[in-house]
Design a binder for these strands. Structure first.
Lengths: 345, 345
DNA sequence: CTGAAAGCGCTAACAA
DNA sequence: TTGTTAGCGCTTTCAG
């Protein structure tokens, strides 16, 4: 197991070669203290440091400053294609700012989530971006109590001083309802996401309000609340609805994964989409336009959400005094594709 | 910007409360040195440490031991759904072993890749898992020269002492060729991936050999080499083939993304898959079974690849003397779905 | 078996 | 403007 000892130049090595004291080198290398050093010395030091390929030892630096320049990002399910673009959006901002993002995937399991958080705090991350929040969330409360800077993304929760970047879930669903109503659908079902998540909750609320606003009847039998945003739950849910409810011609799924499950259920029953049943999703995650049929869904700006959350966190970490916006709520867009059609009469 | 000072117990705090010297506490907390301490003292120290919620300061620990317990994972394109399961497979092994994985996405750009690597080395990652390797790869060579433990995944390159986990790309394509030949296809095109990647190269080679083995004719006009494994390149490639080559009835794409591009090209031209053209992909990435039509493809064991690579790296990092396997090559499976059908005569 | 002390590489307060 | 020094929290040699 020949592991070569990788060793690199220290501040002192550079200092020696430059004929100055190591603290001077330190001052030169830190933009804030650079002005304290004379031009000539600074130039020489810089050249030598560069020449020697000097790189600060992050451990020593962190030990001294008590900052890791590291940010934890918690994702509920990395295999859900909504998240990669969000992650890219985050890294695009945090990377150039000198922060390394530590990504972790809780697989929607609270115990794993707690474990990850513990490890991240043990690692002394400077801040957190959480895509895992529940409407009442132990982990988030812990972060708050702890005082660690964090921002919620996609999902949010009530509370003072909680930074978040979310979408207009309420209004997004209204667009779906209007679209279907315009197509002549009168009985529109809803496959709601988990009600302990703000997304599932708000979209459900949006459904109820929009149905009412359109003068349609709210039939509780037309609503099924799924236990998770998974394809499997979507299938189960639509099957339950098909079995128990009086006929309906359209279903609004709480997100794209649930809608995908609807596809499965319909296929199993020999029903066609959109001829027999219109289906809408939510998120416009990558690839839904390739599905059979291409999915009508509400687009959320993935990449931009990542940017926004990262920027808020950054100003929390570095901002002098300007308070960043408490919560950003993005407006959405309905993308009409092939999974919705005129209601058959 | 009220940032609460988070402070936690140090070794000395624990030592004080336990009435022993801090070095004793250190010995107790480290499994390797625990035996040096008497049972009674160890028990008391452990309880107190636990009680105080002691967590080692990672910066001090790293500064002292020169290890970060951090592993860098480089992915060429995180929006490609093949990778999330691979990442999960990696984390599943590395996490419990006490390593934090730092994920980065090069977006297939060599400059970004180089930048990421520089930053990871600056961060003193203990090892690397690279999914970005080219057949001749500057970055990989740098890692080798540097002596940092690393293992390649999915893609590989020639070279002594390079650890890698790859797939039987050669044999995988042969299965696709056989499948199509069995369906009566005689003129089978190939949309090859970039030839500077082992995957693109080996699959191309596999295509040539398998075509020959089946007694079919190799027609250079039936081969198009794509510049990248992207949907867009797949579309471009198949269009070029359709424009220039004599008629053919099937196309073997270098991976699923290219095959997806084939779908686009066919749709644009009003051709139907599989009626007018059979298409195969490679990877069996998540969701290809939902596409229109569901894709026939070669399945690679994503999650297991991640496991394997992580295990090799782990034994590189921790292994006493047993040398881990130099290269693991996984056997593959053809998944027949709806994108392939009997050749029309 | 336990304590004392040095030092990893860096920053920042203080001196000159 | 530059040098000196202490010390961040830990491991590890060396004494006892």
């Amino acid at each position: 197991m020949a592991r070569v000892a990788r060793t690199r130049a220290t501040l002192r090595d550079v200092a020696e070669r430059a004929g100055v004291h190591s603290s001077t080198v330190s001052r030169v290398l830190n933009p804030k203290t650079r002005p304290m050093v004379s031009e000539t010395v600074a130039a020489r030091v810089l050249e030598i440091a560069n020449d020697m390929g000097y790189r600060a030892n992050p451990f020593a630096l962190s030990l001294k400053t008590n900052r890791s320049f590291t940010v934890g990002v918690l994702i509920p399910d990395i295999t859900n294609p909504v998240f990669p673009p969000i992650i890219r959006g985050i890294e695009k901002v945090l990377g150039p700012a000198g922060y390394t993002t530590i990504l972790a995937d809780s697989d929607e399991d609270p115990d794993i989530e707690q474990g990850i958080l513990d490890r991240m705090r043990a690692r002394q991350v400077d801040g957190l971006i959480l895509a895992t929040a529940h409407r009442a969330d132990q982990v988030v409360e812990e972060c708050e109590a702890d005082g660690i800077p964090f921002v919620l993304i996609n999902r949010t929760m009530a509370g003072e001083g909680i930074y978040s970047v979310t979408n207009d879930d309420f209004g997004g669903i209204a667009m779906a309802v209007d679209h279907l109503a315009d197509l002549g659908h009168r009985r529109i079902a809803h496959l709601a996401g988990p009600q302990d998540l703000s997304t599932g909750f708000e979209r459900h609320r949006g459904y109820l309000e929009a149905i009412k606003a359109r003068g349609l009847e709210i039939d509780p039998e037309l609503i099924f609340v799924c236990r998770a945003f998974t394809e499997e739950q979507g299938k189960t849910g639509l099957e339950a609805l098909l079995d128990s409810a009086k006929p309906f011609t359209a279903v609004i799924a709480g997100n794209d994964m649930l809608a995908l499950g609807c596809y499965d259920a319909l296929e199993d029953r020999g029903l066609r989409c959109p001829e027999d049943m219109s289906v809408t999703g939510f998120n416009d995650m990558p690839f839904v336009d390739k599905f059979r049929p291409p999915m009508t869904t509400v687009r959320i700006p993935h990449y931009e959400m990542g940017n926004a959350a990262a920027n808020i966190l950054l100003s929390l970490l570095e901002g002098e005094d300007e308070e960043p916006p408490k919560s950003v709520c993005q407006t959405l867009e309905l993308i009409v594709r092939g999974s919705t059609a005129k209601a058959r009469d």
